Simulated assay, not measured.
Amino acid sequence: MFQQPSDREIRDRLKQIRRIAVVGLSPNPTRPSYRVSSRMQRWGFEIVPVRPAVTSVLDSPAFGSLAEVPGQIDLVNVFRNASELDVIVDDCIALNLPALWIQQGIINESAAARAQAAGIWVVMDRCLMVEYNRLCL
Rank of each mutant, 00 (worst) to 15 (best):
E68N: 01
M124S: 12
P27T: 05
N133Q: 12
P52N: 08
V50R: 11
A115D: 08
R13Y: 01
Q116R: 09
A67D: 01
L25I: 03
Q41P: 02
L100N: 13
D91R: 06
L14K: 02
S37H: 04
R80M: 04
N77E: 13
N133P: 00
G24C: 00
L25Y: 01
D86Y: 10
E46H: 08
R31S: 09
K15H: 12
P61N: 10
K15A: 11
R8E: 15
A21F: 05
M1D: 13
G71D: 12
V76W: 04
Y34P: 00
I93R: 08
D90N: 15
S6G: 15
R39M: 12
R114C: 14
P5L: 01
N96F: 14
Y132S: 02
P29I: 07
A94W: 03
Q103A: 09
Q4Y: 00
Q116D: 10
D125L: 00
G119Q: 06
P32G: 09
R18D: 03
P29M: 05
E46C: 05
R42F: 01
N108L: 11
D125F: 00
G119C: 07
A117K: 13
Q104L: 15
D91E: 15
V122R: 04
D59L: 06
W121R: 03
N96R: 15
A99Q: 09
V48K: 02
A21M: 04
V89A: 07
F79T: 03
T55V: 02
V57M: 04
A99V: 13
I88K: 09
Q116G: 10
A99T: 04
P32S: 12
